[in-house]
């Protein structure tokens, strides 16, 4: 599965994943965004790994927020943008 979301005036985020038993696995988060420090990408990915496919986007974004430290700067994208990409990957319509 793959979902893309581009923040208006910002950058593209793509989430690739497989579904196994109703959970996201083999998650990859990529895109032309900026992220400081770069190691935070692993935390964002970890927040999505094993996620139930029924999870709504608001709680997906909250999980990402909780997983990254306060010092992390997401530039051109956001936890909400990642959550929207996951939602699209799951075939959910835009709200």
């Amino acid at each position: 599965m793959r979902g893309d979301y581009k923040t208006v005036g910002g950058k593209l985020v793509t989430v690739n994943f497989d579904l196994s038993g109703g959970h996201l696995t083999n998650v990859q988060v990529s895109g032309d965004f900026f992220l400081y420090p770069e190691e935070a990408l692993g935390d964002i990915r970890q927040a999505l790994e094993g996620l139930p496919e029924s999870e709504d986007e608001r709680s997906i974004a909250a999980r990402i927020n909780a997983a990254i430290g306060p010092e992390v700067e997401m530039v051109g994208f956001s936890p909400e943008a990642v959550a929207r990409a996951v939602g699209r990957g799951l075939g959910r319509d835009d709200q």
């Binding site: 793509t14 895109g31 770069e38 990408l41």
Partner: peptide, 9 residues
Amino acid sequence: IGRFQSVSN
């Protein structure tokens, strides 16, 4: 490619 981009994408 950028630091956070996927080659195949």
